[in-house]
């Protein structure tokens, strides 16, 4: 692995909270590594667990699923389903052998630009330590 290797993170961001939070991080000129590719989704509840696996399959080193804090969902309860679903999915992917650091689920509101930048920094550090993901990844 070359020393300038940078992990690739696929981030699924809810358009009401986390995506706006990421915007805030940008307009506030907060610095964080350019390792995340955000995919805007209407709600964290939109994130089919297969999306996560597909991201790993096609070369992601880490995946972030992020949405509104419980109670703040634009659709009232979308993120409460997400919470149940991804509690199981994260544990299951670990059960299949994935390192826990590779998948993160976070609540990041539109006001939490700082939090968004911090999560990306933490994830990038963790993934740099782990190196490229080879598990569940398809042959190039």
């Amino acid at each position: 692995m070359s020393s300038d290797w940078q992990p690739r993170i696929v981030g699924f961001a809810c358009r009401w909270c986390t995506y706006a939070g990421a915007d805030l991080a940008g307009t506030s000129r907060l610095e964080y590594p350019a390792t995340v590719r955000l995919v805007r989704v209407p709600c964290s509840g939109r994130v089919n667990p297969s999306f996560v696996l597909r991201a790993f399959q096609r070369g992601a080193d880490g995946v972030l699923v992020a949405g509104c804090h419980p109670g703040d969902c634009h659709y009232t309860s979308g993120n409460l389903f997400t919470r149940r679903r991804f509690s199981l999915v994260k544990r299951f992917l670990e059960y299949l052998g994935l390192e826990p650091e590779r998948l993160r689920v976070e609540w990041i509101s539109a006001a939490e630009g700082q939090r968004f930048a911090q999560v990306i920094r933490e994830m990038t550090d963790d993934l740099c330590r782990l190196g490229p993901n080879r598990k569940m990844r398809e042959e190039p």
Binding site: L80, R83, R84, S87, L88, K90, R91, P100, L103, V105
Partner: peptide
């Protein structure tokens, strides 16, 4: 509900 990913 708990956040299973923290306890995982």
């Amino acid at each position: 509900d708990p956040e299973g990913w923290h306890e995982g």
